[in-house]
Amino acid sequence: MVHIKLLTTGGTIASKRDPQTGLQKTGVISGKVLMSQLEIDDNIEISVEEIFSKSSGALTFEDLIHLKDKVTEHILDNEVDGIVLTHGTDTLEETSFFLSQVIDTTKAVVVTGSQRGPELIGSDAYANLQDAITLAAAPDAKQIGVSVFFNQKVFMPRFVKKINSMNVDGFGGGGTGYLGTVDGNDVKIYQYPKKHDTYKVKEKLANVDIIKCALDTDEKFIDCAIEHKVDGLVIETMGRGHANDRVAAGVRRAIEQGITVVITTASEDGDVKVAYDFSGGISQFKKDGAINGGSYDSKKARIKLAVMLGAGETVTKEDFWY
């Protein structure tokens, strides 16, 4: 018998239509009610624990720390063989990546959700949950550690991204694709993630903001972040790491104030790289002490920076190489 722990946090997968407004209310349906609608293999035992009951957009860094502690508690429980975490889709990619950065485990931790509520026609809630449980119980999933499951596909948290706001095929893995599939009771893993470092956050995550650049962006939001004494900044630039002289001046001031700055690109694929020599781009950011964020998107870079600073780590370009 395989024991899977189901941890619930709310989100669309636990939503219910409000009869007065006709709109969905998230986090209303309990994990036990969801489980009652599934057809689970007789060799899998499920126990359910509610961690939160809220929209994923309402989660905080403090919530992430609490969630990490709960997941760790069950990983250390010898009676638990795997974990499934239900989560709202809006920040699912951030939470799953956070867990992958702070939890080193040989048990499967599968994060899933749904694009349509359980009561809606064509809902993906029950299929995703049932398949996620099947994945968590599979021996081949243990080597992955933390993964994201959606629409029959298994993704690594480093590259998973919500690519559609409404379609049930809502998540993709970018240029790296997906790790494997679940088809009924058949679990196939085609590739495994590269081994990476994990970190021990001392008390809390560092305060890190994202600032997005576009045509004619200036430095006012960087100056605002400096005024609010943030610990770190992720600057989402254009192309290979390009902005303009005003942004570069703001980045320089932030670094002079002791703020760790990471430069990312808004492009879906490709790395930030010194390929041009002009004053408003990565060549100047590098000279001023900013860190090249490589192929990280801004949200994942923010989580990684918040974790590393919260763990008291020195942050370098090499930390963003993979």
Rank of each mutant, 00 (worst) to 15 (best):
M1G: 14
I4R: 12
I4L: 12
L6K: 07
T8N: 05
G10W: 13
A14F: 04
A14C: 07
D18A: 05
P19I: 10
L23V: 03
L23Q: 07
Q24C: 06
I29E: 03
G31R: 08
K32G: 06
S36K: 05
D41M: 09
D41Q: 13
D42K: 09
I44V: 12
E45A: 04
E45F: 02
I46L: 08
F52T: 08
F52Y: 15
G57T: 09
T60M: 03
F61C: 08
I65K: 00
D69T: 12
V71L: 02
E73F: 08
D77Y: 09
N78M: 06
D81F: 10
G82I: 02
E94C: 07
E94S: 09
E94V: 11
T95F: 01
S96T: 12
F97S: 04
F98W: 02
Q101R: 09
V102Y: 02
V102H: 00
I103A: 13
I103C: 14
T105F: 11
A108Y: 10
A108F: 04
V109R: 12
T112K: 14
G122F: 09
S123M: 15
A127E: 03
A127L: 15
L129E: 05
L129C: 09
A132D: 04
I133Q: 03
T134M: 15
L135F: 02
A136P: 13
A137F: 04
A141C: 15
F149K: 14
F150N: 06
Q152P: 06
Q152G: 15
K153Q: 06
F155L: 08
F155I: 10
R158L: 14
V160Y: 14
I163Y: 00
N164M: 09
N164W: 10
N167K: 06
V168W: 06
V168R: 02
D169G: 08
F171A: 11
G172C: 04
G173N: 07
G174R: 01
G180Q: 01
G180N: 02
T181A: 14
T181K: 14
D183H: 11
G184S: 07
I189E: 03
Y192I: 15
P193Y: 00
Y199D: 07
Y199R: 11
K200V: 11
V201T: 03
E203S: 11
L205H: 03
A206K: 05
A206L: 05
D209A: 13
I210F: 01
I211W: 15
C213H: 01
L215M: 15
F221P: 08
D223R: 14
A225D: 10
I226H: 06
T237R: 07
T237Y: 00
G239T: 04
R240D: 13
A243N: 03
V251L: 09
A254Q: 02
Q257H: 11
T260A: 13
T260D: 04
I263R: 04
T264L: 09
D269R: 09
G270T: 13
D271I: 08
D271F: 10
V272T: 09
K273F: 13
A275D: 04
D277N: 10
G281A: 10
K287V: 10
D288V: 14
I291S: 02
N292E: 07
G293M: 06
G294M: 06
S298F: 00
I303W: 02
L305S: 05
L305T: 10
V307N: 01
A311E: 12
A311S: 05
G312E: 09
F320Q: 02
W321G: 11
